[in-house]
Amino acid sequence: MLALRRGGSEALIQHAPPEVLAMMIRHLEAAWPQEGCGVILRSGAGEGDSWRVVPLPNTSPTPHVAYAFAPEVWLQVCLDADARQEAVVCVFHSHVDAPAVFSSEDRRQAAPSGIPLLPQVSYVVVAIRGGRAASASRSIWSAGDFQTVPLALADFRFEKTV
């Protein structure tokens, strides 16, 4: 059911239009002082790619320090993605006034018992300080663990037009 047909973890960074990543950043900044979260979906291949940012409500009981998707909302995202022939390529969330690192809690949620739930998906964490994106990282499952690399926010920082 879950759309993981194509795309994979490299697709987000190598091919996503900057405006898609800017939409993600704007959502995470707007969620501050709570953690924001969502997914990025992709359909098509090559120049016909279509990208969609899906902000999701954070249903964690402690939204200042954690995020969670409501199971029924996540199921609907997956069903819609399948119907539209989209692949989940990124799960994203913010850390409030904390570093953009894939934390031990993030790892536990993404790979319970050391088995990744979405092995072909990038996990992007954006540090939001004072309501503004300060830094970001991307983690992917590789060689039996999550490997994390920093992302340059300048690569996809766009100010809102007036």
Rank of each mutant, 00 (worst) to 15 (best):
residue 128 I to P: 03
residue 135 S to R: 04
residue 107 R to A: 10
residue 131 G to N: 03
residue 96 V to R: 01
residue 142 S to A: 15
residue 106 D to F: 08
residue 117 L to T: 14
residue 137 S to D: 06
residue 123 Y to K: 05
residue 134 A to V: 05
residue 137 S to K: 04
residue 92 F to N: 03
residue 132 R to G: 02
residue 123 Y to Q: 01
residue 133 A to F: 01
residue 137 S to R: 02
residue 122 S to H: 09
residue 142 S to I: 13
residue 106 D to G: 02
residue 96 V to A: 02
residue 119 P to I: 00
residue 98 A to V: 06
residue 122 S to E: 07
residue 127 A to D: 08
residue 128 I to V: 10
residue 121 V to R: 09
residue 140 I to Y: 11
residue 108 R to A: 15
residue 142 S to G: 13
residue 93 H to V: 00
residue 126 V to L: 08
residue 97 D to P: 07
residue 126 V to A: 05
residue 88 V to E: 09
residue 99 P to Y: 08
residue 107 R to W: 00
residue 136 A to I: 02
residue 120 Q to E: 14
residue 124 V to W: 05
residue 142 S to E: 14
residue 135 S to A: 12
residue 123 Y to H: 07
residue 97 D to K: 06
residue 103 S to Y: 09
residue 117 L to Q: 12
residue 137 S to I: 01
residue 100 A to T: 00
residue 112 P to Q: 14
residue 89 V to W: 09
residue 127 A to P: 00
residue 112 P to T: 14
residue 129 R to M: 15
residue 115 I to S: 11
residue 120 Q to K: 14
residue 122 S to I: 07
residue 135 S to W: 03
residue 99 P to W: 05
residue 108 R to D: 14
residue 110 A to D: 05
residue 123 Y to G: 02
residue 127 A to L: 03
residue 117 L to R: 15
residue 109 Q to L: 13
residue 132 R to T: 01
residue 119 P to S: 01
residue 134 A to F: 13
residue 132 R to L: 10
residue 119 P to D: 04
residue 132 R to Q: 06
residue 139 S to N: 06
residue 102 F to A: 06
residue 103 S to Q: 12
residue 106 D to H: 12
residue 127 A to V: 04
residue 138 R to G: 09
residue 132 R to D: 05
residue 139 S to H: 08
residue 115 I to V: 14
residue 133 A to E: 03
residue 98 A to L: 09
residue 129 R to V: 15
residue 101 V to A: 12
residue 135 S to G: 02
residue 135 S to H: 02
residue 104 S to P: 11
residue 103 S to T: 06
residue 123 Y to E: 01
residue 125 V to F: 12
residue 95 H to L: 06
residue 111 A to N: 07
residue 131 G to D: 07
residue 96 V to E: 02
residue 114 G to M: 11
residue 121 V to Q: 09
residue 106 D to P: 07
residue 105 E to F: 10
residue 140 I to A: 12
residue 140 I to L: 10
residue 101 V to K: 15
residue 90 C to M: 08
residue 121 V to D: 08
residue 105 E to R: 12
residue 88 V to T: 09
residue 93 H to K: 02
residue 100 A to G: 05
residue 127 A to F: 01
residue 139 S to T: 05
residue 139 S to V: 06
residue 89 V to S: 10
residue 132 R to F: 08
residue 131 G to E: 10
residue 109 Q to D: 11
residue 127 A to R: 04
residue 89 V to M: 09
residue 113 S to W: 13
residue 90 C to Y: 09
residue 91 V to I: 15
residue 119 P to M: 07
residue 113 S to L: 14
residue 95 H to N: 05
